[in-house]
Design a binder for these strands. Structure first.
Ligand SMILES: [Mn+2]
Ligand SMILES: [Mn+2]
Ligand SMILES: [Zn+2]
Ligand SMILES: [Zn+2]
Lengths: 134, 134
DNA sequence: AACATAAATGCAACGTAGTTGCATTTAAAA
DNA sequence: TTTTAAATGCAACTACGTTGCATTTATGTT
């Protein structure tokens, strides 16, 4: 279960091993930061149809291969890996300078106290600031 | 400074006291939850032009009369009141059932530890769950 | 009160992110 | 090899919001 090939990942999720998906997966694995639709199109030299790419991003997300990030920029970002169950222990750092979106493992789960009668299912945090490269 | 009329609020911010703004302000003050563009149009019986409404939402936001909320639904919500400086002590609760967006005062400021070299400017949190009415 | 001026409004056209319908192709199973 | 459902590509479409521009209105000055 440690070293899975692209094909194995897709097979495990019940997704057909297509050219587009293999290329997409290849790029996701070697890119460190969250990617936008445009980032991916650029990386893949615009060889993939728009709707095909969007549909695959949705499939990958549903299969838990990637997760979708709302960084408040107006366009979604996508990063490799599934969100932890409940989404509690994951946050995203958005650099105000270079716009890079980093996935952050949150060591201490945030404890937000909500009013009586409110039931928390999931906490999603966006941290804005300046990244180590800027 | 306690009880300000709509007109006084606008005057204080250097905004002209127009029909549209008075109506908009009237609705913001009596609605408890965050409102979408569509909510507001409905409340105002579609009497306001789309661009006028959007422009006023932006003006109100810049003047600190309201704040804009990204609830990850794809459309912005707007709520009365300015965000606290730095945006640290405010979070939003989104009900997964009725979609209502609540402003939450966060008592204990969230402490997220970011990696070395990262500088946090601002933390924005969306809590998803079930509200007390659902 | 009448005038001047800048700001606000309304309308239409535009932009961008993402979605959908449908005909064609392709992966994979029989 | 044949079959079948899933994936692809293309074009058209939707939703949310923005922009340019002519007209109107609020407000300050005479
Ligand atoms: Mn992440
Ligand atoms: Mn709020
Ligand atoms: Zn940066
Ligand atoms: Zn609810």
């Amino acid at each position: 279960m440690e070293k899975m090939s692209f094909g194995q990942i897709l097979e495990e999720k019940g997704l057909k091993k297509t050219k587009v998906r293999m290329a997409l997966l290849h790029h996701f694995l070697q890119l460190k930061h969250a990617q936008s639709y445009n980032d991916l199109q650029l990386a893949l030299k615009n060889e993939i149809d728009k709707s095909t790419l969007y549909r695959n991003l949705t499939s990958f997300e549903q299969a838990g291969i990637i997760h979708r990030i709302n960084d408040h920029s107006g366009t979604s970002k996508y990063a490799f890996g599934e969100l932890p169950k409940g989404g509690q222990d994951h946050a995203h750092f958005v650099c105000e300078n270079c716009e890079t979106v980093y996935c952050m493992e949150v060591s201490t789960p945030l404890q937000l106290n909500v009013p009586k009668g409110f039931k928390t299912k999931n906490v999603q945090t966006i941290i804005k600031g300046i990244c180590s490269k800027c």
